[in-house]
Design a protein around this nucleic acid. Structure first.
Lengths: 304, 304
DNA sequence: TCCATTTTTCCTCTAGGTGGAAAAAAGCTT
DNA sequence: AAGCTTTTTTCCACCTAGAGGAAAAATGGA
């Protein structure tokens, strides 16, 4: 039998001065209420409420217990309400990991608005050029581009897609010429992001036809921003997601090349551990970020 | 399911960092412990303990709830222990009613010792020359001499028996002569206690023979001490229980008459309400008083 | 004395909780 | 990488504790 229910019957009965009314208010039968009260008195070894069929009154033990019991029930409700409030109003620390580029371009610009919405939730961005382990690094949310997670315990939700482009500074193109067909890339200086799948092989398609090109690597680096800076300096042709160089292209600082050819789309995903109950902070952050990215047409990430 | 048991499983699990060890310590199966914890999390709508088969750790919600939960369990134990202590060490107020005589002669002399034994229990003596109603007067214990209680809800325990005697002051007997046989009483001044059963009829027996005498009443009073004082002043012959005039007889202030005749024995009883659980204070007082009266051979109350 | 109402207890039924065992998972060792 | 050990979770069959309805008992008022 639920000991708290026993205490509730006792407190309600003392309040109403009636077992029947206590039973009604607790949605239980008279018989059940009587049993609950008797069970409590049995366990305590004392009569808490002296009663007959016409009236009842608290014993001295009952009066003392009533004070404590009422306080206990209140505190129990408060404890549960505090937890419930935490669910509705997340707080604490949320650890998000992503590439430096994604953090700079997609998270940092909207973080202030997020903090305004959830003032008690601190967000810590852990930029890394490799995928961190959720458990080892204490990560709550990860932004990843790989198609599949080896760990089936990870939930993956799609943020959007971004095309990969080939682009170079106008100065470089003046100096080295514009590549006309994919094979021309073999004679160009290529700036390679070495964390990509098969970083030295390019698969380009046009009108259903594919061409596979092996490229050298004038620069072999694990950071998109470093590669972008090198390209801006005229060091070669880069292959990067549109969202990273969208502003550069609009500014004319980088010029796309082989634009009638397509490279494989890059899917941007948000990932978190599959838990029996998704922590509120993970949920609110994920929903927020997805909403922000999808509602910005200029960021180079589309969703369909 | 017992909600407190759920909280106990949670707190134990957090302490041991193991559901299995929490289960052992609470004498329940692993399955039951798992269900209790899951049920608590279900009701709260939040994961309190994140866990896999190898380790577990508190969520932030779990950390906060743990503080409150631990306090709740402590306070619940304290509330129950406070009640238990009250049972073992009675306190509060005990209302005892008896005749003035009994209170003066049998209760007052031992009350100090009782209070020393139970310092937190206050005894209130309500002397009355009539029987008070338990419920109306809020009486816990009553000393009564009547043979039967009309209320079957009253428990009656025998304190002892006291013979009733006829006695008068030596001066009165010198002046009016010593009665020789029961019929002589009709020509004497009789001091009648009008609360007795059939106060104006005396049934005296000797060697198996009974004589019934109708007596007049020079004094008709409802208080034994007033009757005693009148007899001491030579106003007439009284009929009173031995325990009231035992000291007067030893002192020679009152002289028993018709001593080879017997009046009906008076049974002294202690009475209290039949309750589902006898209050500790009623029990300890009753036991104490019975013990004191039975161990005093000089008080005029015998027990066999 | 009768009546209405409340508390308690009895009875029957079933829903819920049990433990054991199996499944799944996880981390360590080889 | 595979195997092993241990823990947590879930399933299953069983049993009992708790349910409500009704009757019994009690109580106070009319």
């Amino acid at each position: 039998m639920d000991r708290l229910a026993q205490v509730e019957v006792f407190v309600r009965t003392a309040g109403f001065m009636s077992l029947s009314r206590a039973a009604i208010s607790l949605n239980m039968s008279n018989a059940a209420a009587s049993r609950h009260l008797s069970a409590l008195e049995e366990r305590l070894g004392v009569r808490l409420i002296e009663r007959n069929t016409r009236r009842l009154w608290l014993t001295e033990a009952g009066q003392e217990f009533l004070v404590r019991a009422t306080q206990l029930l209140n505190e129990f409700d408060e404890a549960e309400n505090a937890v419930l409030e935490r669910v509705l109003s997340p707080s604490g620390l949320l650890k998000v990991t992503s590439s430096l580029s994604f953090a700079m371009l997609c998270i940092a610009p909207v973080l202030q608005e997020f903090r305004a919405l959830y003032p008690r939730l601190n967000v810590q961005i852990v930029t890394a050029n490799r995928y961190l382990d959720f458990i080892e690094a204490g990560i709550d949310v990860a932004i990843r581009t790989r198609e599949h997670e080896p760990d089936s315990g990870i939930i993956v939700r799609k943020l959007g897609s971004t095309p990969r482009l080939l682009a170079a500074a106008p100065e470089y193109l003046s100096r080295r010429g514009m590549p006309v067909k994919p094979a021309d890339l073999m004679r160009h200086d290529m700036l390679v992001y070495n964390l990509a799948n098969e970083p030295n092989i390019l698969n380009l398609t046009r009108q259903g036809r594919s061409e596979r090109v092996n490229i050298g690597n004038t620069l072999d680096c694990n950071d998109g921003q470093v590669i972008r800076q090198a390209a801006l300096a005229g060091m070669g042709i880069l292959i990067q997601p549109l969202y990273i160089i969208a502003d550069d292209i609009r500014a004319g600082s980088l010029v796309p090349v082989l634009t009638d050819w397509e490279l494989p789309i890059l899917n941007m995903n948000i990932a978190y551990q599959n838990k029996t109950r998704l922590p509120a902070k993970v949920k609110v952050f994920s929903d927020f970020l997805i909403s922000k990215i999808r509602s910005n047409p200029d960021n180079g990430i589309s969703y369909s």
